[in-house]
Design a protein around this nucleic acid. Structure first.
Length: 485
RNA sequence: GGUCCCGUAGUGCAGUCUGGAGUGCACGCCGCCCUGUCAAGGCGGAGGUCGCGAGUUCGAAUCUCGUCGGGACCGCCA
């Protein structure tokens, strides 16, 4: 027998027992971690997804186009990674948060169906579902409406799931943002379980219970059979949690064996109200009912959070339930500092044409042709139909407090090409790391990335980021400040 | 910027609350023995800055403060 390569013992077990090994140890020696069946499997799933997605796009007539990694800085959006220029010291490139600008210019350039498996970089704090650099399936189409874009993207995510699991999920349901908030209390509902929010406002229209009498919106959720496991202490904790989310309080009721309510507020409810409540929520013994009374948005958001707290399975547990959420609001409120409206998506997002007459009179009621794709309660991606008409674009800018001069200064390089004729267009992008993680049954995208970074952003294996030599700094015309104290 | 949790042998842990010698367990590693394997078995051995630094104490893995590293989350991510 010939020894072709000597090997020291591995630093940790290379089987499933290493699932419990300190992640820093795994990352510091990722080349060993990657030998494990779990990591081999995850990276192969990732490759399958990339292949399936690319094939789906090509099959649908999309053209794969690469866009630059070195691009101008753009003031809007996420914090950018910045690259100093050697040839022009004192100037900087930015790495792309997304290929957004380029892909819209590709539409002006006549590439009417573009896609790219694109690397995106954002200098924001890392999370279980966020890395500095991540991959998106990015697409843009000309002469299309919302449904055309959704159809194209949907084909690719269904193909991806089928490629990995062998089972093609059903057509992806489409609900409006308002329906999502009203029914699930979140813009990224997890459809794998029920516990929908139930409208109760009418039941308490004449109530003598003060907390309900003045509320604009009363809704409730039912956790079937959950009452025995929710003691007074845990319910107090849940109430505190609800308050931390903005609720004025939380009403809980346990359903007793005889169908009556066991609750601190039971005595404030009339017999008719109790009967109607029980009937509306189809309450059965041992059910736990949670009610919130507030303005519509707060009621929905708080109950949506509680619904997830009580009922949501681990994110990577099947089945796979995709969901389209459409008709997001064009504006998401007013910036407290500036008093100006804030965009929900980006300033180039096309308002819903039915709501155009409200753009100046009731801007917060204007819906946008903007949409999200959700999988098992995780936001996979978002997109919109873009504004191609300069007049409409300026109307939206005006609402955002941006006059023509400022628009030209900030977005001129992007908007001027539209003067040569921009087709109506729209697109979408979704995170491949998140998609792969869920399809691989992982709750953390680091498990489906060959060389990910921990929350601190440093690379435990290579030591990056590292200081550079003075020679390099000089070449770039840079000088370091003393460390901040 | 903030909240919470974690840090003991190469790896995973017990010990920490209630201070008393690094007291241990499993896997791995090294040596010898045995062997028809299949998570082999037997005997023996090496391996420790209890993350780091102060403080309290006669005495600190254990209590206090600080700090470093990691994780989950909030902010942030148009």
């Amino acid at each position: 027998m010939e020894v072709i390569s000597r090997a020291e013992p591995p630093l940790f077990p290379l089987d499933e027992r290493a699932d419990d090994v300190d992640e820093m140890v795994r990352l510091r020696h990722r080349y060993l971690d990657l030998r494990r069946p779990r990591m081999q499997r995850n990276l192969r799933i990732r490759s399958q997804v990339n292949t399936a997605v690319r094939a789906a796009m090509v099959r649908q007539g999309f053209v794969e186009v690469e866009t630059p990694m070195l691009m101008p800085t753009t003031p809007e959006g996420a914090r950018e990674f910045v690259v100093p220029s050697r040839q022009r010291p004192g100037t900087f490139y930015a790495l792309p948060q997304s290929p957004q600008l380029y892909k819209q210019l590709l539409m002006v350039g006549g590439l009417d169906r573009y896609f790219q498996i694109a690397r995106c970089l954002r200098d924001e704090d890392l999370r279980a579902d966020r890395q500095y650099e991540f991959m998106q399936l990015d697409l843009e189409m000309s002469f299309v409406d919302v449904d055309d874009v959704l159809d194209a993207a949907e084909e690719s995510v269904l193909d991806a799931a089928e490629a990995v699991t062998g089972v093609r999920p059903p057509a992806v349901p489409r609900i409006t943002w308002h329906q999502a908030m009203d029914t699930y209390g979140t813009d990224k509902p997890d459809l794998r379980f029920g516990m929908e929010l139930v409208e109760l406002t009418d039941i308490f229209a004449q109530t003598g219970f003060k907390a309900f009498a003045t509320a604009g919106c009363i809704k409730g959720i039912k956790a079937p059979g959950a009452a025995p496991e929710w003691g007074r202490n845990k319910l107090d904790g849940l109430t505190d949690h609800a308050k931390s989310l903005g609720a004025k309080g939380l009403v809980w009721l346990k359903v007793a064996a005889d169908g009556s309510f066991e609750s601190p507020v039971a005595k404030f409810l009339s017999a008719e109200e109790s009967r109607a409540l029980s009937e509306r929520l189809e309450a059965k013994p041992e059910d736990l009912l949670l009610l919130v009374a507030d303005e519509w948005a707060t009621t929905c958001e708080v109950l949506g959070d509680l619904r997830n707290t009580l009922g949501r399975p681990p994110v990577a547990e099947g089945p796979y339930r995709y969901l389209w959420v459409v008709d997001f609001p064009l504006f998401v409120g007013v910036d407290e500092a500036t008093g100006k409206l804030k965009t929900g998506h980006h300033p180039f997002c096309h308002p819903h044409t039915e709501d155009l007459d409200k753009l100046e009179t009731d801007p917060l009621a204007v819906r946008a042709w903007a949409y999200d794709l959700v999988l098992n309660g995780w936001e996979l991606g978002s997109g919109s139909i873009r504004i191609h008409d300069p007049v409409l674009q300026q109307r939206v800018f005006t609402q955002l407090g941006i006059d023509e001069e400022e628009a030209q200064a900030r977005f001129g390089f992007f908007l001027n090409p539209f003067r040569y004729g921009a087709p109506p267009h729209g697109g979408f992008a979704y995170g491949l790391d998140r998609l792969v993680a869920i399809l691989a049954g992982e709750e953390n995208i680091r498990e489906v990335i060959a060389f990910p970074k921990p929350q601190s952003g440093g690379d435990p294996m290579t030591g990056a980021p590292l200081s550079i030599e003075d020679r390099q700094l000089n070449e770039l015309g840079l000088r370091l400040l003393p460390p901040a104290t």
